[in-house]
Design a binder for these strands. Sequence first.
DNA 1: CTGAAAGCGCTTACAG
DNA 2: CTGAAAGCGCTTACAG
Lengths: 335, 335
Amino acid sequence: MTPEAPSVRIRDVAERAGMSPATVSRVLNDSSLVTAETRERVMRAIAELGYRPNRVARNLRLRKVEMIGVVVSDIENPHFTGMVRTVEDAAYDRGYRMLLCNTDEKAEKQRAYLEMLLAERVLGVILSASNPAGEEIGELLDLGIPVVAVDRPVKDPRADSVTTDNLGAGRIATRHLLETGHKRIALVSTPEVVTGLERMAGYEQVMRSASLEPRSAPGYSRVEGGMAATEQLLQIDPPPTALIASNNLVGLGALRVLHDRGLRVPQDIALVMIDDPFWAAILDPPVTALAQPVRKMAECVVELLIDRLSGDRRESRHVVFDVELRVRASTARVD
Amino acid sequence: MTPEAPSVRIRDVAERAGMSPATVSRVLNDSSLVTAETRERVMRAIAELGYRPNRVARNLRLRKVEMIGVVVSDIENPHFTGMVRTVEDAAYDRGYRMLLCNTDEKAEKQRAYLEMLLAERVLGVILSASNPAGEEIGELLDLGIPVVAVDRPVKDPRADSVTTDNLGAGRIATRHLLETGHKRIALVSTPEVVTGLERMAGYEQVMRSASLEPRSAPGYSRVEGGMAATEQLLQIDPPPTALIASNNLVGLGALRVLHDRGLRVPQDIALVMIDDPFWAAILDPPVTALAQPVRKMAECVVELLIDRLSGDRRESRHVVFDVELRVRASTARVD
DNA sequence: CTGAAAGCGCTTACAG
DNA sequence: CTGAAAGCGCTTACAG
């Protein structure tokens, strides 16, 4: 490695080629008004010097950055991983790059990241909010940087949003279990996120209309949390005959505990999870799941963003996707 | 949204505060040589105008960007997801941001992304190479941007690397099955990546020393590929009594096919997978796995990078981690 | 078709 | 402690 790689600049290339920086810039930007011969000379100089344009300078000059910020609360949650992947794909095709931020469900980290994205003047932000009321969201919008909320809406009405019908998901899961003959149905909830609260509300509605008492314990969106909550719910006397897991991670935790306790699924206790990660169908036993159309949602998110970037849509859009019940062995009727 | 949010600049703040831009800059950068009163006035002006510093300009001026690039081949593969997450954490703590790039195992995408990272003049790059011989790697290093290869080494000797003992993994998996009494052991391979080739080599070595014929089919690192390869291996006459899956995704694919075919695991056929994703222990049945210390590896990667950034280590380092066999039901001895 | 010049929004060495 | 000035490395409107 050379001591201090003296970055070669456009000026150096210009000198070498016997041209002005303006001309070199034109060559680099495929301007049509440049002779084939000039282009040739410039290209040669570039190659000889190993010149690499500095995009930071370009970005400053053009006052824009071909980058979008993607802020999620847990990149390890397959739900978000799938989202991120789809967004990356779509963004790449359009020449945008992705700045990925993981907030760990912390308002403070969200704040820090959004401020950074704002300072970097990214083109747009896709946000699964840890703090839906964060002021930085408004500041981004003030600066003309579009924000698309995904999975969870944000407070600022100027942001677009793409969400799923979480209330519906909670209801469908509960109804499915009622129809399978269960009455003591408990919920491993994820109450620290709105989606979890909505799912819980759906569950409680259906339970109450069936004159049943809702019971839940918080799993906090992690495998370990799901385990602890399940342990707790199994203490209830008499214990539940069915569990609803509010997301895939707490679902996995729940299943692990059921296994550890030697409980058979679905004979001793049934299980439904909201979310349908790619490994749900191959668990022991395959788990009945409420699938969110993650791909479609991500595509919708990108479209909304692109739309804002290229056009001048003024009104905000809010798209809500339905979930789909996929019945598997974990809720098979036991006669 | 205002038509064209007229970004407020440091100069505007200076005017408002009756100060020079230099002073405002000093306040922003916590320079000690500024009066409390001046600071006060500047802060007020900032608040009144809703000023947000433009980092692109700052980056240009300082000729550095507090950002590191992370390039992986498949963000959806839990192996990389865990890696990315750990790296993000460590980077965040140190004030660096992460530009995440997904190459989809395509040399062309790798090239495009590395060029972008180079143009953006990121501080450093963490790379799980799709193309270990990519020229851009050398170009980054030429520019003084450190590169740490992870999971797969790269050709340029100036890059650091953090890998696992894949040859050993292939061997251990095979030996474990031999010890469990199997002879017809087949491999669902991932030959499009070096790690896969090494694992295969380990498998073949052990098979040959036991005078057994190695048999494998390529799963190309995806669930669907794993399914196809497994179908193929089951055609062999007589069929294998045990399978080794070269990574977690093809392992999941293999298991799915075994289920679909009504084959019992391990009674009809045993399964080991290299990689131990968080859901492996709860599959049907729990799958024996070779765990890579993903967390530790990621921490090591960050350390190597930081080390290069802060110090002036000249020689490159290459760290190799061992895998750990975790025996579960999928390879239980069947008597 | 090409160049000189201005400017994107910051920071900092140099004076005072 | 504060300011004027130069400069980070580009791009482009304006002349020619």
